[in-house]
Simulated assay, not measured.
Amino acid sequence: MIDWSTEDSAPNNGKVALVTGAARGIGLGIAAWLIVEGWQVVIADNDRERGSKVAKVLGDNAWFIAMDVAQESQVVVGIAEVLGQFGRLDALINNAAIADAHNPPLESLELNRWQRVLAVNLTGPMLLAKYCAPYLRAHAGAIINLCSTRAHQSEPNSEAYAASKGGLLALTHALALSLGPDIRVNAVSPGWIDTRDPAERRADPLGDQDHAQHPAGRVGTVEDVAALVGWLLSGNAGFVTGQEFLVDGGMTRKMIYQ
């Protein structure tokens, strides 16, 4: 488990990663992991107060910018800030999302709610890829899109979230073909991940039943996702692009009959 303070981080490797939605949860876990691996990480989030606090805790290799990824003008300004501060960009991790998987029943689903979910979860990653591409290309960079196992499986009343993540998965392989060979693009699709801060996890642990239903024997952690992202950004994954990696403890392979 990662301690969000990174006093033991590796020396800066000179590479810069932009992680959206990194003020909490999976995005925060990815940011902390990359800092330990020596990356300079730009934390982008629309929660200014928490984002600033998180960057301070993570240390000198973290830098916060405010951004609503669904607003093209904010994406343009934010990327300009990153280039002005660091002069380069090596990785884009599209993690920002409206993470509520459930919407009202279809007959009651308001169009503006549907459109907002798709704007953040799907249009945002497209905008970021569009405006980051020239700078990623200059350094043979990579894009990681955080999708979801809900691109493959659903519960009732989850149309907006499922559609956004299914679209993001398709966007991933489309970008891989459009931006290759200079930029690699892959997707990571988490299942049930305990996204709470470490102190909350320790204070209120999940139950045995939560863990036992997974073929891997436990619910996932943000570190499980972050470790895979770190590998996909490394030279060891240089032959990997256009792919989806499921991090779900085996749940999507499990037959469930009631």
Rank of each mutant, 00 (worst) to 15 (best):
L111T: 05
P198K: 11
C132H: 09
R150H: 15
G191D: 11
A138C: 03
A163V: 08
H173K: 07
S164M: 04
S154W: 09
T123C: 00
Q71C: 03
P205L: 12
P156A: 14
D182R: 11
V188Q: 12
A96G: 09
V76E: 15
S154P: 04
E155C: 11
R137P: 01
T149P: 01
A162L: 05
I193N: 04
Y135D: 04
G141N: 08
L127H: 00
R196V: 07
P181E: 11
I143C: 08
A97Y: 14
S108Y: 03
H139L: 06
I193D: 05
R113W: 05
V120K: 00
Y135F: 15
E155I: 10
L171V: 06
V185Y: 03
A96S: 09
Y161R: 03
A187D: 11
R113G: 07
P198T: 11
Q85Y: 12
D100G: 07
T172K: 14
A174F: 08
N95W: 02
E81F: 01
V75W: 01
M126E: 00
I93D: 08
H139Y: 11
I98N: 11
V77W: 03
A133S: 14
Q71R: 01
I79K: 04
E110C: 08
S158A: 14
A119V: 02
N186V: 07
D100H: 10
S158V: 05
L127I: 02
S158L: 09
L118Y: 00
A151D: 08
I143E: 07
A70H: 00
G78H: 02
Q71S: 03
T149W: 05
P134N: 06
L146H: 01
S154M: 12
H152V: 04
N121S: 00
A97G: 04
S158E: 15
A176C: 10
A160S: 15
A138K: 13
